[in-house]
Simulated scan of single mutants.
Amino acid sequence: MDRPVGIETDKEVVIIGDIHGCLIEFQEMVSKIHSRYGEDTIIVSVGDTVDRGDYNVETLEYCFELQKTGRFIEIQSNHNLKLYRWFKGRKVNISSGMKKTIDQIIQIPQKKQEELKEKYIRYYESLPLYLIINGSVVVAHAGIKDEMIGKVNRKIKDFVIFGETTGRYTEKGFPERLDWTKNRKVDKYSPIIVYGHVVFEKPYINNKAYGIDTGCVLGNMLTAYNPFRDEFLFVKAKKQYFSFD
Rank of each mutant, 00 (worst) to 15 (best):
K172L: 09
W180S: 05
M29A: 07
S190T: 15
S95D: 13
E118S: 15
M148D: 15
V198P: 00
P227C: 05
F26D: 00
D213T: 09
Y241A: 07
G47Q: 14
T165M: 08
K188W: 12
I192D: 01
I212G: 02
Y210R: 07
K238G: 15
N226D: 15
V235N: 01
H197C: 05
Y225H: 08
G38A: 12
Y62L: 13
I102A: 04
Y195Q: 01
I108Y: 09
D10A: 10
F228E: 10
G17P: 03
G196F: 04
E114R: 15
I193V: 15
Y195R: 01
D51G: 05
E28N: 05
F159E: 02
A140K: 04
I19D: 06
G211H: 06
V139H: 00
R177H: 07
E115L: 11
H79Q: 11
D213N: 12
D54H: 10
F234Q: 07
M1A: 12
Q107H: 11
F244L: 13
L66C: 03
T69P: 05
H141P: 04
P227Q: 07
S243K: 15
F174T: 08
D18M: 03
L116N: 09
W180Y: 11
L222A: 04
N226R: 08
E74H: 00
T165S: 15
G196M: 04
G21T: 02
I144M: 05
T101D: 01
I16K: 10
L81E: 14
C63G: 06
E114Y: 11
F72T: 00
I149R: 00
L131M: 13
K117C: 03
K182N: 02
I149C: 00
E231H: 02
P109I: 08
T59R: 09
R85W: 08
Q27P: 07
N183W: 13
V14K: 06
F64H: 12
I75T: 00
R184M: 03
V198C: 12
P227G: 05
I132E: 07
T59I: 06
E61K: 14
Q107D: 13
S243Y: 11
K182E: 12
E74Y: 00
G6Q: 15
E176N: 04
H141K: 08
C22H: 03
R154G: 07
L218S: 04
K172R: 10
K238W: 05
R168L: 13
R154Q: 11
G215Y: 03
F87R: 07
V198Y: 14
K239S: 11
E231Q: 07
P227D: 07
D146W: 04
R71V: 00
S45K: 10
A224M: 02
E164L: 13
P175R: 02
P227S: 06
P175T: 04
G163I: 06
G135C: 08
N226G: 08
K238P: 01
V235I: 14
P191K: 15
A209M: 06
P109M: 07
F234Y: 14
N153A: 01
I15L: 03
S243C: 09
D51Q: 05
L129S: 13
E58L: 11
